[in-house]
Structure formats: C-alpha cells, structure tokens
C-alpha cells in the first residue's frame, strides 16, 4: 500500500510537470482536493502541510508575474503548491514507522550490491533515537554555559555538544560490535 502511494506520488508529480494551462491545473487541484476528502484529512492538518510554503508560493507568484504573465505565474505557483500537497497527503496518511518498514522492503534488492537492508534500517532507527538524546544534550550544554555566565558563544556551545555526540556515537558503536554487528 505504501509502495503504491509512493508510486502514485511520483506519477502525480510527473503529470503536474506536463500540465501547461491554468484550466488543466485547476482540474488537478480538484483531483488533489478529492484525494484529501477521500483520505478524510482534517482541514487544519491539510493546511499544516501547505503552510510552510505559503510565503514561497507568494514570492514565486509575484516574481513570475513580473517576469512573465498571469497565466504562467498561476501555472507555476499552482504546480509547486499541488506537488507539496500531494507529498503532504502521503506523509499525513502514512506513519513514519510504516514508511520505514516499506523502505526496508523496498531496499531488499540492494542485497545484490552487498548492502544489507537490515543495517540500513538500523541506521535510520538509530538516527531517530539519537535526535531526542542530542536535543537533551544541547539543552544541558546551554544550561551549563548559562550557569558559567558565558552568554552566547557558538564555540562554547558546539564544542561540548559535538564531543558529547561523538562519545555517545563511539560508545554505541562498541555496544553494537559487542553484539556482533561488525562484519
């Protein structure tokens, strides 16, 4: 199912690039809206996907209007917004864990070039696990910095953060090789 969605997304983006008139893109917009309706996405969640590109879309529209004409500006802007909307729909309807599982299945052919899909998905999972850990480390470093009265220095912040991250990584590496993950 996830694989189908991703294929659909690729096909959808290709079609969007091929459409050239405002009318055709209006049709595409109707299709995208219908897809959102079928997926029962709440308007707030849908807006959350489009919101990050709103200023970009506006800037794009204005520059296109100045450099070309109204139809061209409409077509280019709608194309980008619809692509983001389609990608957002896949993201909204697929939990990250399901997406990762699909990725692991999709990566299975990599075995042929001697890449282990298990290692790839382990690496992705470890990265996800490290994000909250490093966020916490960053917070602690900043607090320690404040306690010593160093108000704002990138060096005083980043050096301990990176050393801490490296220590964590190397301890993790040793733990992994103790569990037989070395080749």
């Amino acid at each position: 199912m996830t694989g189908l969605k991703l294929l659909g997304l690729a096909a959808g983006c290709t079609v969007l690039v091929l459409l050239q008139t405002p009318a055709a893109l209006a049709g595409a917009a109707a299709v995208v809206l219908a897809l959102y309706a079928v997926a029962r996405v709440r308007p707030a969640a849908a807006w959350g996907q489009i919101r990050p590109v709103r200023w970009f879309a506006l800037a794009l529209f204005v520059t296109q209007l100045l450099l070309a004409d109204l139809p061209a500006a409409t077509v280019t802007t709608m194309r980008v917004v619809l692509m983001v909307a389609l990608a957002g729909l896949v993201t909204l309807t697929t939990p990250a864990s399901v997406m990762l599982a699909a990725l692991e299945r999709g990566l299975a052919p990599l075995r042929l070039v001697r890449v282990d899909p298990f290692r790839v998905s382990l690496m992705l999972t470890l990265t996800l696990r490290s994000v909250p850990l490093l966020t916490d480390l960053a917070r602690r470093v900043r607090e320690a910095q404040r306690a010593r009265g160093v108000s704002w220095s990138v060096r005083a912040f980043a050096v301990p953060l990176v050393v801490g991250a490296l220590r964590h990584a190397d301890a993790l590496g040793e733990a992994l090789s103790a569990r037989g993950l070395d080749d």
Partner: peptide, 12 residues
C-alpha cells in the same frame, strides 16, 4: 558499512 563504529557515527 564495514563496522559498527562507522554505523553509529553516521547515525549520530
């Protein structure tokens, strides 16, 4: 990916 140490460093 040769060893676990590299894997951990890349992830972190």
């Amino acid at each position: 990916m040769k060893n676990a140490g590299d894997l951990a460093r890349v992830s972190v």
